[in-house]
Nucleic acid binder design. Sequence first.
DNA 1: AATGAATGAGAATTCATTCAT
DNA 2: AATGAATGAATTCTCATTCAT
Lengths: 207, 207, 207, 207
Amino acid sequence: MPRKTTLRRQPVQERGQHRIESLLDAADAVFAEVGYERATTNAIAARAGASVGSLYQFFDDKRALLDALTQRYHTQLRAVHELVLTPETAQLPLEEIYDRVLRALADFHARNRGFQPLFHGSSTTEELAAAGRALREECINRVEQMLQVRAPGMSPERRRLLAVINVEVIRALLPLSESADEQFREGVLGETKKLLLGYMAKETNRI
Amino acid sequence: MPRKTTLRRQPVQERGQHRIESLLDAADAVFAEVGYERATTNAIAARAGASVGSLYQFFDDKRALLDALTQRYHTQLRAVHELVLTPETAQLPLEEIYDRVLRALADFHARNRGFQPLFHGSSTTEELAAAGRALREECINRVEQMLQVRAPGMSPERRRLLAVINVEVIRALLPLSESADEQFREGVLGETKKLLLGYMAKETNRI
Amino acid sequence: MPRKTTLRRQPVQERGQHRIESLLDAADAVFAEVGYERATTNAIAARAGASVGSLYQFFDDKRALLDALTQRYHTQLRAVHELVLTPETAQLPLEEIYDRVLRALADFHARNRGFQPLFHGSSTTEELAAAGRALREECINRVEQMLQVRAPGMSPERRRLLAVINVEVIRALLPLSESADEQFREGVLGETKKLLLGYMAKETNRI
Amino acid sequence: MPRKTTLRRQPVQERGQHRIESLLDAADAVFAEVGYERATTNAIAARAGASVGSLYQFFDDKRALLDALTQRYHTQLRAVHELVLTPETAQLPLEEIYDRVLRALADFHARNRGFQPLFHGSSTTEELAAAGRALREECINRVEQMLQVRAPGMSPERRRLLAVINVEVIRALLPLSESADEQFREGVLGETKKLLLGYMAKETNRI
DNA sequence: AATGAATGAGAATTCATTCAT
DNA sequence: AATGAATGAATTCTCATTCAT
């Protein structure tokens, strides 16, 4: 779980709120470009048009930036889920659900370049790994909820297993849809859907 | 592709060959534990029971360790493929193939803890990312060859697409089988097989 | 030619300007004492009452210190030349000119202890050698200009040759005037003058 | 003065004598190329076709190489002097003497590339500076002896002064005669002779 | 004697974080 | 709040020297 994100100082003026946002944007960008380890606080501040001192006015340390950013990912991710993985949508045909989810997530990825390495979670930096786990957990839970609606008879263990597999497969294949080759990109999205659809159709029937 | 791995100095004495191997073992372990970036050459040397100087006697720099290690992965990986993905095995039932491959790869992973982060390739360190790409490419090619035997009528583009999907899915799900929960672990392996089997059965028939 | 001296960061605060100057003073002193190669950035920083980090805030690397210092020498040297080697002074008796020049240079040497090894140019460190060449070139050009005024009929090649000889001889003999022996010191200055005077009197007449 | 050069081990076999010579040749070359400080004992050994271990068999440390080399310079330099600066030659016309000396020294320089930086003596490495001083002293003494024969009435102080000036001027100008420009090179030698000849002619007469 | 591997102190440089202005 | 200068521990890499074979 990400540490409770406490800003060193709650911004009093709205100018401060802007600063924070642009610092987080900068962090997202720099983390995405060079990775958390190699991102320097100076580079992040500079990118945000601020000075290091200013950065430390709001964030305790580099780690706090990561935490706040993760928080932001969580919030936005929840919003995405709210749109496509609700009790109502659970009634839609599976294909329609995958369609919406994949599209929405591809979008989310594109807007948050720093998200992917985090989500991908192969990090050896424990703080990063933990953040990634938490984000994945969020997604898994969502899918579990969906399954509970669609296949109420399924055991919790199996529900979990299927949820995990869905999340991991999407996590693995979504980045491929950033390939430069238009045709390949489309192919990947289509095949991902086909792959999971075939699998889940069988599984959710069989309970 | 990893750079041609050139040792700074080819060991003349047999003692040197040992050193090199244990340095690589140590590098594998340390990279796995703290990641490439945070791995220090001193830590690696110490782990190998050597001094930094000794390390630098054989390796130009930290990067050279990574390259040599990658080379070793390539070699071992090829050996694994040689055992389970040959023209002959291509005739076996799909299920048998997945069984062998998954088992062999789980093994390989367990013996090379540093392999996974590399293979996972979400690294922002270009050198790592490149090494990961090369390792993945190796696997993808192997699967393409298999497909050529099993489904000779398939278009090269489609062959590539299916190969990529197979590799990515396995790459994503294999780490789950390192979960502590025995039952979950078994579940993952089983489901992975089912997932890909169902998908590939359909796809290879349909051409 | 010394590389264009670019400070890593132009000091914004006045405190920074001071720092830079004292770092250059320290570099001059340390280079003079132990030579460029053996001068450590830590020693230079310490001498300037700063920390290494502070040094690197303004200078890209050790080499940048040398470059900035060389720049400073160039500037000061030009100022010296401006005083003693102008078109007007070209009309003065040769003896008067040598008198002024030698005195001014002895002074300059005394105030910039790091200058001499550089100027002497027997360095095998290419960067040092280049800097030395540039400084010598500066002096040679000045003398050439003087000659053009005093002996306009002389061929450019000969002018160059005489200029080089003057500069080299002064460069070689000036350090002797730092001998502890007062009498010897005076002797050297006098003889240098006599040596060059006799030579140049003949040469400039003969064209 | 260079330390008494004691070889760690007096070579018993003649093979050892060869080794020593080739190590010194290598040291001369490497010192000339990269300077004493940056010369590595490994590089020197390699250049001599030996291993470091072998080098240390004969030389206590890097410094010992320098000392032995300096010794060799001394010996050869003395030989040069023996040919051109003897009581008999003292009777020759000054011009003839300068002619011989300059030619002989240019030769010596060419054969001992490592000699010049040492002789030039602007080193801040005390050991090098000392070696350079000693070599210069050797030359100065020789010139003093010559002067004693040619101008017996001259005071010792003045003799010393003139000797120093002669040595320094030659030291400064000789390297110029390594210029690529054939004409310039010849010019330098000629002018050097003229410069010193004019000066000394007057001085030795006047006593 | 020779070889080449082993050692480790020391140097340059970076960067998170603090602090004076 | 903001700025940017200051700090110094930590890291990579080198090289003189020693030592096992």
